[in-house]
Each structure stands twice: as structure tokens, then as C-alpha cells.
Design a protein around this nucleic acid. Structure first.
Lengths: 189, 189
DNA sequence: AAAAGCAGAATGAACGTTCAGTCACCGCCT
DNA sequence: AGGCGGTGACTGAACGTTCATTCTGCTTTT
């Protein structure tokens, strides 16, 4: 038999993407996961736990994807293109993950502390890079959270638009390099 | 006696800002509004209606605030400073409205169509200005929704930081003009 | 045969909504 | 002026539903 825990996580993700977290009772999750309602509680203590586990899972995958081919010793611009480019390519290639992230990140079902905890792993490289950029006088002297919002928010929005209207939306014409360039320009002072 | 409908709206807003929408049962809203649970239903058909009415109210006030002193015939940059500056000043001066907006805009309790409908009034001037800027070759050729996300998202985030940490956060040193300048630079191609 | 895994009915709490009754107010009749 | 009846805003207990969680007993594994 397949890993039941993973099966439940996948079912939860599917359901949230399809119906939204607020319309995902445990009964429906268990139905989608092909298991009884009680079975879920063998693997997760509460619904909150389940959702948080999903969140952790999501950001672990994202962190791995972002770090791919990252070289700490490369020049700032190169490292930037790596991290931000990896992010963009990942959410573009995984619409469900993107949609899930959008839902969970703004959801009150996960408290801020838990969110920070889960995102922490991903943030270390990013924070480090941003501080580097500021120290070199290349980036604006603004809080990292702000710089992150602007750049990652832009990339997420672009990916979303591209996924919604694959043919018509104007960014389709931009190369990936140009889009990452836009983000770079937003940070540049 | 005071306007009961407004009293209920205010109570709802207070409760949402304080506890979050998902933790606002009608019973608590009515308690805060000093009325019986049934009274709410004299003014709003359902809870969804109540929340939507609050959303409408919120954006009507915001639209009025943003439009203040707007001159359609002024140069692009002047008009930009008016609209974006008004927005920034408004959310900075009204932390509760800002917090409420943040909650409602990402809430699944209001469907996208309703959100668009409520925001529509505010968008007309903004859309017009952005199209102008693109036509003049000053702004990037990107969807307005994207340009809005980047600029208004930045301003909201800045206001939020400033409200969270009034003393320590680095943007406190920036003048309002510099902050609006950052937004302008983000649009400039 | 013992243990563990599992299903799904049962449970009880929480919530949105309803509705029968109360109360304050106002115009009208005596 | 003072009682009377009608009106409708208002109340809050009660209702029915939904949902997370628990429990009981069945099935599979060891």
C-alpha cells in the first residue's frame, strides 16, 4: 500500500486548491484520500496540525527548488538570478503549489509564528543575499520583508496571470531574464 | 438613538480587526453592537451580506480619500503623486482600515466578483492614469493589476511596518515624497 | 491469537439563522 | 387629557445544520 500519510496530505492539497481551505471539511478530505475520517487522526493530531504539515511540506519543496545550483561564492547578480529565477520557474511549473501557497500564506488557520518557522529555512539564503546587496550599496536600505514582498509578490502575480491567461497576457512576451531583471531593478537603489 | 446599521457595521469592523474574521460569530458581533442577534438580520440578509457591506463601505471611504484634490488635467507625475500619496496617507492615518482591508481582500468570505465590483470605483482613475503612462512610454507595458500589486502592495506593507514598529523601522526616515518616488520608479521603464 | 491499522457511525460543540414574544412609540377615539 | 389599539423595531432562546473529533468494532498483519 502507498504511504497513507502522504496520500492524506495530497488529498488535502487537492481539496484546498479546488474548493478553498474554508470549504474543506475533514469528511471530504478523507473521502478524497480514500480513507475513513478517523484514519486521518492516526497521522495528524488535529486539522490544524494537518494544514500546518502541508505548509511545511510546501515550503520544504520550495526551498529545495530555490536552492538548486546555488553557489554562495558567486557574484551578487548571479546569486540573485539563481534564487529568484528558481522561484519563478518553480511556481510557473507548479500551478497547484502556487495556488496552495497563496491560500495558506494568507490563511488565519496557521498562526504567524508557525508561518515564520516554516519559511525560515528558505529565508536564510535570501536574507543573506539581501544584506550583502545592501552592504555593497547596490540595494535599497529597506527591511527585507518589504523587499521580499515586492519581488516575490511580483513574481507570484506574474505566474498567476500567466497561468490564468496563458495566451493573452502581456508578460508572456517577456523572457524570464527580463522578468527577473524587473525584480532586480525594484531592489536597486 | 444612533444609526443601528452603522453601529453593527462598526462593531463588525472592530471585531474583525481584533479577532480576525474567522473568529467572529454573529453572537459576538451582536454583543459588541449592543443588540440582539436577530437585529442584525433586520439590516443584513446574511452574514455574507454584512461582510460585503463592510467591504463596500471600506472602499467607498478609500476612494473618496484617494480622489481628494485630484486634477484630471494635471501632468502625469502630479496626478500619480496625488492618488498614490493620498492612498499612502490614508492607510497610514487609519490603521484599522488598513488592517481590515488586509483581512477582507484576501478573505474567501467575499467572492472575487464582489471584490472587483467594490474596487471598481477606485480603479477607474487609477486604470486611466496607468494607461496614460504606458501610452506616453513612461510606464512599463505590464498589466495594470500587476502594477497595482507592486505599488499599492509596497505602500501597504510600508504602512503596516510603520504601524507595527513606529520607532525602529528604516522607512520612518524616508519622507513621504521619497516613498512615492520609489513606487514611481517601480513603474518607470 | 494478539496487535495494529482502519473505517465510518456516533458525539457534542459551535454557529448562522429564525421566530414567538416584548416593548416603546404614535395616532386616534372618547 | 387620558386611555386604546396598532405598528414595527428589537430581543434572545431555540432550531437545525455542519463539522472536528472520538469510539467501537471489524480486518489485516504478525
Amino acid at each position: 500500500m502507498i504511504d497513507k500519510r502522504q496520500q492524506i496530505l495530497d488529498a488535502t492539497a487537492d481539496m484546498i486548491v479546488e474548493y478553498g481551505l474554508q470549504a474543506c471539511p475533514m469528511s471530504k478530505i478523507s473521502a478524497r484520500a480514500n480513507c475513513g475520517a478517523g484514519t486521518i487522526y492516526r497521522y495528524f493530531e488535529t486539522k490544524q496540525d494537518l494544514v500546518f504539515a502541508l505548509f511545511i511540506d510546501l515550503f520544504q519543496k520550495l526551498t529545495v527548488a530555490c536552492s538548486e545550483g546555488y553557489d554562495e561564492t558567486a557574484p551578487l547578480r548571479t546569486r540573485f538570478e539563481r534564487l529568484w529565477g528558481n522561484y519563478y520557474r518553480y511556481i510557473l511549473a507548479n500551478p497547484n503549489q502556487r495556488a496552495l501557497m497563496e491560500q495558506l500564506i494568507s490563511s488565519p488557520a496557521i498562526c504567524q509564528q508557525q508561518k515564520d518557522e516554516a519559511i525560515n529555512g528558505m529565508m536564510q539564503q535570501i536574507d543573506h543575499l539581501l544584506e550583502d546587496g545592501k552592504q555593497q550599496g547596490v540595494f535599497k536600505e529597506l527591511p527585507n520583508s518589504l523587499l521580499n514582498t515586492v519581488t516575490f509578490g511580483t513574481l507570484s502575480m506574474m505566474a498567476k496571470k500567466q497561468q490564468q491567461f496563458p495566451d493573452t497576457h502581456p508578460c508572456g512576451a517577456c523572457t524570464e531574464g527580463e522578468i527577473i531583471g524587473l525584480c532586480w531593478d525594484a531592489l536597486k537603489r
